[in-house]
Nucleic acid binder design. Sequence first.
DNA 1: CACATAATGTAGCCTCAGCTACACTTTGAT
DNA 2: ATCAAAGTGTAGCTGAGGCTACATTATGTG
Lengths: 151, 151
Amino acid sequence: MSQSPKAKRAGAAMELPAELTQARRFGKARSAQSTALLEDYVELIADLLAGTGEARPTDIARRLGVSHATAIKTISRLKREGLATARPYRGVFLTAAGEGLAARVRARHRLVVDVLVALGVPAEAAESDAEGIEHHVSETTLRAFGRFLNS
Amino acid sequence: MSQSPKAKRAGAAMELPAELTQARRFGKARSAQSTALLEDYVELIADLLAGTGEARPTDIARRLGVSHATAIKTISRLKREGLATARPYRGVFLTAAGEGLAARVRARHRLVVDVLVALGVPAEAAESDAEGIEHHVSETTLRAFGRFLNS
DNA sequence: CACATAATGTAGCCTCAGCTACACTTTGAT
DNA sequence: ATCAAAGTGTAGCTGAGGCTACATTATGTG
């Protein structure tokens, strides 16, 4: 339809790379969603462990606003991915990898919230939006955020 | 386990609201993911229509980096939600609602990119991260971004 | 110690968003 | 006018992430 045989429209030569670039971006955003849940769980589990010394499926479920069955299923996934350990009826704990991820996620979360607040976003909205935003902030952007806050 | 009948730990009284607030935040982030795909499609379709006058499933698929079958399935969802119209072998078009959404999404995208760049994020990373971030920026935060850029 | 209750775990179902494989239209050259 | 290539559509599969309903295990009173 649009690509006539010989008279291709001008600009077609630079459109193929643009297509690929855009596809890569969308793909990146999609895969970020896949890890976002894991990050949320790990961060929350670290919180609970630090706060009360234990992370139980029911508490996790309540805090995330999902059923306990869903929480348990996701915890299984955490175990599969080597981020957590859990024995039946014994609560959830983080592996070294899980702890590392939790620390990185927490630092990123704080940075994002601080930047939003510095830009004039009310604290409550900043916390709320950061929950979704943080999973899509690259290392590069994170560094820029850090530099911005130190000035 | 943790909640003994009478000797509840201090701070329990303020934890229930906190739990609910956090659950609401996570729920919001989850449902945002659900609309993110639709927003991406609508924005892209508007782009294609503006650029070449037509939006074909194969082009959409290529730009998003998915198979054409996936694109077609999602286009069906757009139709179901009243955002687009499409007749077999005739390309995709936006309804009034779709156009409106596309306009809002595009404006938001630009604003997010501009803010990132203003914060010192390299243009390429800004574009890439914005793709994921934009879907999680609330109206409140958006307004703050606007105010920030005018100063 | 028994037993009710709360927490935990399991099974089975749903929707969404991917995919591949195959079938069917359209289109443009010959 | 034919026919091959490209685009489009359909079917059926997967895994993720939800849910409810039911089964099982711990816990803490009585």
